[in-house]
Design a protein around this nucleic acid. Structure first.
Lengths: 140, 140
DNA sequence: GTAAAATCTGCAACTTAGTTGCATATTTTA
DNA sequence: TAAAATATGCAACTAAGTTGCAGATTTTAC
């Protein structure tokens, strides 16, 4: 019964007009079973170290993203920008807006977003961060 | 009249029991005038290339963060985790929860957060992403 | 089923972010 | 102003992510 996830992955690849390769199928299946987003390093490790070249994994992910089957989730790790601690509480800071045109990031200190509630059982939420994407006045 | 921001920066450093060094004052002032978070590379560039070693900038930021004067904002760039596109709309995906204990990231597909409204004049918000931090059941 | 066309994959080599150890320079304290 | 405390710069390193290209795999068309 290994079939069902496998077939689903293949069907999705076909629908997206992508070649059904071992690596793509493996990554789609892996992401399908994973409860959260994974990095290239995590994917490589979970598929069995050395199974696939890291370049292949990056390129595979790129094609899956372009096809809309997969998308990037932002994760704190290695995202190191700094700002003053003004107007920031323990639990939440203002949202940050990044313009998809020019790439500039702005603080939206005037907006506040309610904190998430109803975390799954057993999870304790301590902090929330919100990122917005769109166009700034000069790029709109 | 260069004084006011400068004095404020120095006062903050003193209050935090940090040495008032040229680099710290410069970075605090820079972040004070900046409308958004900056990376090490951007800071180096804006302070005049070669003025400070990158190691110094990283260490300065680290001490400012530890003192609570500055904090890290997450920015998409270089945060490359991937997941299936299930349950994700154009405008918003489910929140992601990262455990500060074990570092694992989970998708909270059951929660939804209202989209930000009232963007500053001229900005157009196209997409919103929410990150949560806290403790997972095994680490709580 | 098979050959040609289209597309992937792996390898080597590279770029850039971020870190560590240590000697020297700067700031603070007394 | 000297000694103690702490920051800084440099060199060398690790690890993520990218590019070009040759060889391998998948698909298409017959």
């Amino acid at each position: 019964m290994k079939g069902s996830l496998d077939n689903e992955a293949r069907a999705n690849l076909r629908a997206a007009k992508l070649y059904c390769t071992r690596c793509r199928v493996a990554i789609l299946k892996l992401l399908g079973r994973s409860g959260g987003p994974l990095s290239q390093v995590q994917i490589a490790r979970k598929l069995g170290g050395g199974q696939y070249d890291k370049v292949t994994i990056y390129r595979t992910l790129e094609s899956l993203v372009n096809a809309g089957l997969v998308h990037k989730a932002f994760v704190q790790e290695r995202a190191w920008h700094f700002e003053l601690s003004d107007n920031c509480t323990e639990r939440q800071c203002h949202p940050h807006f990044t313009c998809t045109g020019c790439g500039e990031t702005h603080c939206f200190t005037g907006i506040s977003i309610p904190m998430a509630e109803h975390a799954p059982k057993g999870f304790r939420i301590q902090r929330q961060q919100v990122r917005l994407e769109g166009l700034c006045p000069s790029c709109a």
